[in-house]
Structure formats: structure tokens, C-alpha cells
Amino acid sequence: MNYLYKSALLSLLLTINPAQALEFNQLQPAQSTMTFGYRQMGVSMEGKFNRFAAKITFDPAKLSSAAAKIEVYLASIDTGLAEANEEVAGKKWFDVGAYPVARFTSTGIKALGGNRYQATGRLFIKGRTLDVTAPLTFQLDGHRGLFDGSFIIKRTAYAIGTGEWADLDTVADDIQIRFHLVVTASPAVNPVH
């Protein structure tokens, strides 16, 4: 009852003034997805990562202190095919034995107007760190904050898929990473009016 009351109050506050300072910082992994798309022999393919974690602090009213650190457990990759999952865990692809985690560390986020933002950061995969820029949207859904965005990495830039797989006619260079992150505001944080 108490909880119901609290969340009712919270959503009330959000609907009254959705832009008010409320820090979204609790990733809801079960509701979030991390998928990727690529082209193989001209065919659009999709896959996903089943396990990832994130430390996010995001207050739309205080973008300067927003930060995100997202870790993806590469062994949790699901290409849709067991044989391919095994292959991409290997040395030629992600080499998950040596580099089990891919890590995005934000360096900044700026508002593009409306609910659109642009995040910049450093993306670490397989021993290499490169700059990435990801356009994204942020929407309120009740007490949940929804981050949706995508960006493209070049697999060759990270030496993902070497040896016979380096041929880009079979598996293309561009890998699109798509994220749908559901982040709730911590109940401990009081809205600042």
C-alpha cells in the first residue's frame, strides 16, 4: 500500500512536470535490450547480447552531470545459431577468454531538442578503445525512463573477425549497435522542486 502510494505520487509528479529534476539511475536489465544488426552476404541479420550492466545517472535538467558506463558481457551473445555463437567467442572475433567485457564510458551528452540527445563516449572492445557518438531519445513512461538509440561501429577497427573473416564481402564492416535501456529513478532520490 505504502509502495503503491509512493509510486502513484511519483508518477503524478512526473506527469505534472516531467522535466523536473529526477535522476534516472537504476537500469532494469530484464526490460532492456542490447541488439546488433549487420549484413551477411547482402542479408540483414540480427543478434543480441543477453547480459549487460550499466551505471547510469541521468537527469534531463542536469545534463552536465549525466554519465553512463555500460558493460556488455560478450559471452552472452546470441546470433541465433549455436555454431555462430561459439565461433564469435573465439580469438578471431571477440576473444572472450581474454576480453570478456565490452565497455562504453560516456564523455558527454548534449540535448538536440525535444526528446533527442547525443551521447559521446569511449568504447572499449577487444583491447582497443575508440570514440563513438550515439544519437538517442529519452522518454518518460510512467516512472520509467526509456533510452533508445543506435550507433555504428566498424568491426575491422576493433579487429573483430580476422583471418579468413576479414573479407568484408561475406560479413560487412558496419555493425549497428542498438540499445533500448529502461532506467528507473532511484526511490531514494527526492525530486527537487
Binding site: Q40, M41, G42, A84, E164, T170
Partner: peptide, 12 residues
């Protein structure tokens, strides 16, 4: 064949 670029090509 075991998974390889050749296999993907031949499937196509």
C-alpha cells in the same frame, strides 16, 4: 562444412 566465410558464400 564448418562455419566459415566459404560456407556462408556457398549457402547463398
Amino acid at each position: 562444412l564448418k562455419l566459415s566465410p566459404l560456407k556462408l558464400e556457398l549457402y547463398s
